[in-house]
Structures are given as C-alpha cells and as structure tokens.
Amino acid sequence: MIQIKDLSKIYTTKERVVKGVDNVSLNITTGEVFGIVGYSGAGKSSLIRCLNLLEKPTSGEIKIDGLNLMKLRGRKLRQARLKIGMIFQHFHLISQKTIYENIAFALRAAKTPASQINKRVTELLEMVGLADKRDVYPAQLSGGQKQRVGIARALANNPSVLLCDEATSALDPNTTLSILRLLKKINKELKITIVLITHEMNVVKEICDRMAIMQDGKVIEEGAVYDIFSGPKEELTKEFISSVVSFDVPSAILNKCTGRIVKVMYKGDVAGEGIISDTVQQYNIKGNFLHGSIEYIQEIPLGIFLMELQGDNQEVEKAISYMSSRASLVEVIDHGN
C-alpha cells in the first residue's frame, strides 16, 4: 500500500512561488497499476518524483508498506529506495556501457555480491526479451529496446513498487503497446505495484486499474478506470476521454438530420445486448446510426452510440423511454427540426 497524505511540493524562485504538488492525498493498493494523468505542468512528474524522494516534499506524508519515507535519513532511506524502481521517458542509459553493464551497475550500486550479479542480469534480460543484446551498446538499440533495458535495470533489486515517468511518451504506438504489455506482465507475475504517469489516455485504458486526474498540482478526480471512462465528472476528464472515445459528428451530417439525436451508453454485459435493434422492431420509428463504438476497459465492454430517431413524437418518446429502461444512459442531445 502506498499512502500519500496532504503532500505538497513548493518551488521558490526569485520571481514567484509555484505549487508543483498542492495538498494531494492518494491511497494506491498493493499490486495494482495506478495511472496519474495530466497535461504538462499539472504536477504529475513532481508527484511521482516525490514518491522516492528524488524531489523532497515541502510537507505531507509518504508511506510505502507502512514505512514513512519522510522520516528516513541516510542508510535507512537508501535501503527504502532500493524497493522503489523507476523508469524514465528518455531511458537514462550509460552510453559507454554495454546493456549487461548498465543493468549490473544498478546491482553493484546496491552492493549486491559479485557472485550473484551475472545470474541476476541474465534473468532480467530474459524477462524483458533482450537475452541476445547483453553485449551491445545503447546506441545500437531501438527506442523500445532501450526502454526494456530501463525496465530491467529498475527491476534489478527486486522492488515492490515501480514508478514510470512518461515511460512510453518517446515511443511509437506499436512499441508503446509492447512496453505496456510487458509492464502488465511484470505486474501480474511479480505482483509489483506500478504507478504510471502519462498524458495519454490510451496508456491508462490499456493497463491501469485505477487512475487520478491532476490539474494545477491538485487531484481533481480519482477512481476505477472503467468508472471514470463511463462517467467522468470534471470537464478536464471529459476532455482527456474524448481523445480516446470521440463522438464528433460532422456538422454537415447533423444539419441533414430531422429527427431526435440521442446518445446511448451501455455498460458491462448490457453492451452486448441488442437494445437498439429491439427498440426499432418494437416501435414505429426509424433509427439511423451516426457514430458509435464498443471499447473494452479491463476487458469489460463500454458501448456509446449516437443515433437519429425519426417518427411520430409519441413513438419516439416511447422508444427513448424503453432504451432508458435497459441502457445505462440515454441522453437527447438535439430535438431535431
């Protein structure tokens, strides 16, 4: 369990005082993948760097497995940090060292006995799929391969927590997906808690269990990823979700619509039911699909559709009422001409 309580980080310059993290409290459950989302300047990088005290918080508490990091000093703090691995956006590999040496460096820094280093590095290279790259240098690797080395290095000392600071932002979409799948595999097999910061909702949708949205140093919304995708409360959250699930219909098409335009949302198993087809068959209306899709979040379907309903007003009202009784949400967004 990671417990963050009333955490603040204030940066002071000659010109002004900036609250990078503003009184944030979060509980992250052992073994989950927790996403922290926000635009540049939202405070998410400051928050994650406070978790291993790369940035010293101005105030508040950080407890990992019951240990208050804010009260540790010297050797005890260094030992606690060994249980917190971190991977970065730009890899931070040592260009003059081979892949083997990059990973071994983390073990030597932790004073791992020399007799154990070769076995551990070999295990890690196999885990991240780079067993054949042990003697090459970072310049000879692709971006995705470099990040795999970064992951192996972060796992070297068997951490209980893995912090990912925009770990996929420098990668193309296909490579991003492969890295996210590797992180999910590590999370499941090693039971490591992962805290992942990003500005990309596709990343959160792919592997996170829960998430928090940050703005101006504060957490403005928090919850299970599925719940936030299916029922966002804050405007910023809705903006982020629209980057993944977009339902903008061209105005030229909307201008041709004469019926009522409704938004229909299905959650869970309901998304697989034929609600719309049942509605059109039971009532004397015509239904035209304008836009829609079914997303799978944590393997649970979330369906959202925009459609135009044409016909007698009473029949349309009955159809909307029927859909409302079966769907999670039915919202009339245009009453037609």
Rank of each mutant, 00 (worst) to 15 (best):
A327Q: 01
I285G: 02
L290A: 04
Q298N: 10
K286F: 09
L309S: 01
I276C: 05
K286P: 00
I300S: 12
I285D: 01
L290W: 12
V245E: 06
E295H: 11
Q282E: 10
V264G: 00
I297F: 06
V280M: 07
S277F: 05
F289Q: 00
Y226W: 02
Q282D: 11
Y283L: 06
K286N: 13
F305T: 14
V244A: 10
V264M: 03
N284L: 11
T258D: 04
V225K: 05
A327I: 00
H291V: 11
Q314T: 15
Q298W: 00
E235L: 15
E239H: 10
K286I: 12
V249T: 06
A271Y: 05
E273T: 14
V244Q: 05
S243W: 14
K286R: 10
Y266C: 09
N284I: 03
F229C: 10
E234Q: 14
S321A: 13
I294C: 10
I285S: 07
S324F: 02
G231K: 10
G292H: 08
V249D: 10
N284A: 13
S230N: 07
H291I: 11
L306Y: 15
T279R: 07
I275K: 03
Y226Q: 01
A252Q: 14
N313K: 13
V245T: 08
S246L: 09
Y226K: 03
L306T: 12
N255K: 13
G223M: 05
I304S: 02
L309P: 00
L236E: 07
D227W: 08
K286G: 07
V270P: 01
K267V: 02
E308F: 03
K238F: 04
F240H: 09
E317D: 14
A252G: 09
F289E: 03
V270F: 01
I300G: 04
L309D: 03
I294H: 07
C257P: 01
G274R: 10
L329G: 03
K263A: 15
R326D: 01
E315H: 01
E299H: 15
Y322K: 11
K318F: 04
V280E: 04
E234Y: 14
Y296C: 09
Y296S: 12
M265Q: 13
